[in-house]
Amino acid sequence: MKRELTCIICPRGCGLTVQINGDNVTVTGNGCPKGVQYGIDECTNPTRTVTSIVRVANRIDTMVSVKTESPIPKGNIFDLMEIIRKKEVNAPIEIGDVICDNVFGTKVIATKQVK
């Protein structure tokens, strides 16, 4: 099986061709080694970093931006959004503070400081 992909690792957006023959996966068209890994992952276990916001309960009209520390399986994006949407946190918050621990093999962490 052959798949044409656009690498999303960086803004360059290399056009990748991924050739899958059983366990043997080859990637061509990549501009850097990261493209090979992306091509393989995208055809076997596609993942995405998810970013969103969480309400800060003890501050008026304040949201803290968050992200998954590492990418999660694409199929779990909306499950994660359900968890994030129900979450509330209290300030003060520092960048990197854990907002949700142990979700889909990673953590959700704050990307903004709230004093």
Partner: peptide, 18 residues
Amino acid sequence: IHNGFGLHKLGKELTGPE
């Protein structure tokens, strides 16, 4: 709040606020 900032300049992928 999305990610994709800083790969070229800082060598890591950050969100806008970061």
